[in-house]
């Protein structure tokens, strides 16, 4: 009896350890697999040429990722320019000014926004944002645009990052000790002055991290952006131009890549690029969060 219990315990411990090891090794395997697959491309092309050339002619064996990188960064930065102030002020309102019930009401709203699949955001973008940009915004700025543009992608992406960033910001403001605010208020500062001088400063590293993680989230978003951005390989000159993002490139071309040599390797290199950038960003900002929680 005791023996069998011990036996079960030892088997189960080993199983648990095996599962943990597996989970920890998986990302390393992904990284290694992507490096392995992009090796053929890396050995025949210079890295600087791959990253900074804008000649993308797979059939001529020319793979310049620059247009995709530029578009991805444009869309992501623009999306954050829209969503960051929105999230920051909304989180301030919810934690400082709003009545308790309103925060309670907002939590499911944020949950639902976070849960809506990206393809549904894409449908919404096609129905609302693309016509809005094409018929209203572009003529207003005297630009020529069908609506399938960097700006449309950025607006859809901004909405998608809202729940993600907002949730982290709410957590940041929740963790600031109440006494800090009370001390400031008792010295005669107004509520807004307290927020501006105390809370924003105290929470600065958390706020920065929320924005940084939002950036990495937005950079990897695929389907929704793909549906509204137009997918034209070019270096965009204005926000009303179409573009082609890095994740979009991978998603759109995977089916046919087998017919052209080193195309497959190039797409894997694209995935590797994305993987590496996002891991680095995540490590940096998670580390900042971790450090700020210790203090």
């Amino acid at each position: 009896m005791i023996l069998s219990r011990r036996l079960i315990d030892s088997i189960s411990s080993k199983w648990m350890l095996a599962c943990l090891t597996f989970c920890l090794l998986l990302p390393l395997a992904i990284g290694a697999g992507l490096v392995f697959k992009s090796m053929p491309l890396l050995s025949s092309h210079k890295l600087s040429e791959l990253l900074f050339s804008s000649e993308w002619y797979p059939s001529d064996n020319q793979f310049g990722f620059w247009p995709f990188i530029v578009t991805s960064v444009w869309v992501t930065v623009l999306a954050l320019i829209i969503s960051c102030p929105l999230c920051l002020l909304a989180s301030i309102y919810l934690t400082q000014f709003a009545p308790k019930w309103f925060l309670k009401f907002m939590r499911p709203v944020i949950d639902i926004l976070a849960g809506i699949p990206s393809v549904v955001y894409g449908v919404w973008g096609l129905l609302i944002i693309v016509p809005f940009v094409g018929d209203k915004l572009a003529p207003f700025f005297h630009a020529d645009s069908l609506g399938y543009s960097i700006l449309a992608g950025a607006i859809v992406l901004a909405v998608m990052t809202i729940p993600y960033i907002l949730n982290m910001l709410l957590e940041v403001f929740r963790q600031i000790p109440v006494e800090l605010g009370e001390a400031s208020l008792s010295l005669g500062a107004t509520k807004w002055e307290t927020i501006k001088h105390i809370f924003l400063r105290k929470g600065s590293s958390g706020i920065l991290s929320a924005f940084g993680l939002g950036f990495s989230k937005a950079l990897g978003e695929t389907i929704a952006v793909l549906m509204v951005i137009g997918n034209v390989i070019q270096i965009p000159q204005s926000v009303f131009d179409s573009g082609y993002t890095l994740p979009g490139l991978i998603a759109n071309n995977y089916g046919e890549m087998m017919s052209i040599p080193s195309y497959d390797s190039a797409l894997m290199f694209g995935a590797l690029l994305l993987f590496a950038i996002i891991i680095v960003i995540n490590v940096i900002f998670r580390y900042i969060i971790y450090k700020s929680e210790l203090v």
Binding site: P27, I30, L34, L213, S216, K217, L219, G220, E221, T222, P247, I250, A251, A271, L274, F275, I278, I279, I281, N282
Partner: peptide, 8 residues
């Protein structure tokens, strides 16, 4: 944070 397209 790893995007789903990378898993795909």
């Amino acid at each position: 944070g790893v995007p789903s397209i990378v898993y795909g």
